[in-house]
């Protein structure tokens, strides 16, 4: 187990493994997102209250889930990097940030477009919306902080602390609709009791979520490879890499 862990944390091995794994994440992600889109737009029945506007949730909910999941992954990577001084974990955290930031932008934009017909406003300083906006600022702050250091090690350490401290915002986003009387609707699928959404509407959402998770993994493979190359100064294996991989 430790040997495997040690092997994976070696830059050349991680670089090659990520390259090999990428197509196995990417193409299933494309397929699942296509099926989820078809299911959500065509097969799922119309909602009796929200009519066809509820179909926006097929892209809004997976984006929102991923915006939080990616942040937690980034903070865990940053913490591992900080505690065990593992460079690859810092590279993972750094690679997470732009992907998570894009998911957060998508969440805010699609939520806003959904809010206009449903609530009559594009934006409201509601706890869920405000905490999601703070999440975007945390991602942007993390990236800006990294960019402000020339030295990678110092950038790793400083940004890791920001990522770990910022994780406190994640449960606030997640439970804001339960803790406060929010304009945003409550949870439908993550309730401990049975989900309050019919199976015919639920399955495209789950397929879409899985598709988004695999998409994140695929983009992560490319981004972590870039991060590894940016940090690697040892020429011996760099000269062997193939531009096509």
């Amino acid at each position: 187990m430790w040997l495997w862990f040690h092997k994976l944390s070696s830059p050349p091995h991680a670089f090659r493994t990520a390259g090999r794994l990428r197509p196995w994440f990417f193409w299933p992600a494309v397929l699942l997102i296509a099926i989820g889109t078809f299911g959500g737009l065509v097969l799922a029945p119309e909602d009796y209250q929200q009519k066809d506007a509820f179909r926006i949730l097929y892209v809004h909910v997976p984006s929102a889930s991923l915006s939080l999941m990616v942040y937690v992954a980034m903070a865990v990577g940053a913490a591992i990097g900080l505690i065990w001084r593992m460079k690859l974990a810092h590279a993972f955290a750094a690679a997470c940030a732009p992907i998570g930031a894009w998911f957060t932008v998508l969440t805010l934009a699609t939520g806003s477009i959904y809010g206009k017909p449903m609530w009559g406003t594009w934006w409201e300083w509601d706890p869920r919306l405000t905490s999601e906006l703070i999440l975007l600022f945390l991602y942007l702050g993390y990236m800006a902080l990294r960019a402000s250091f020339d030295d990678t090690q110092r950038a790793d350490r400083a940004s890791a602390i920001l990522a770990i401290v910022g994780v406190v915002n994640v449960p606030i986003v997640k439970y804001s609709v339960v803790w406060w009387n929010s304009l945003h609707q409550g949870p439908s699928i993550s309730k401990l009791s049975a989900p309050s959404i019919h199976g015919s509407m639920l399955w495209p959402l789950l397929v879409m979520m899985l598709g988004f998770v695999l998409y994140f993994a695929a983009v992560m493979c490319d981004r972590i490879r870039s991060e590894i190359l940016r940090r690697e100064r040892n020429a011996s294996w760099l000269s062997e890499i193939d531009a096509e991989t």
Binding site: R55, A109, Y114, D222
Partner: peptide, 30 residues
């Protein structure tokens, strides 16, 4: 889409645009 067409379609188009751009940008940077 029962009158919600512009909202639904703009959300889906925006999502796909961002997903494609994100994957393409990661590939280019690599």
């Amino acid at each position: 889409m029962s009158g919600y067409g512009p909202y639904v379609w703009s959300c889906f188009l925006l999502t796909f645009a961002v997903l494609i751009y994100n994957a393409w940008q990661a590939r280019m940077t690599l």
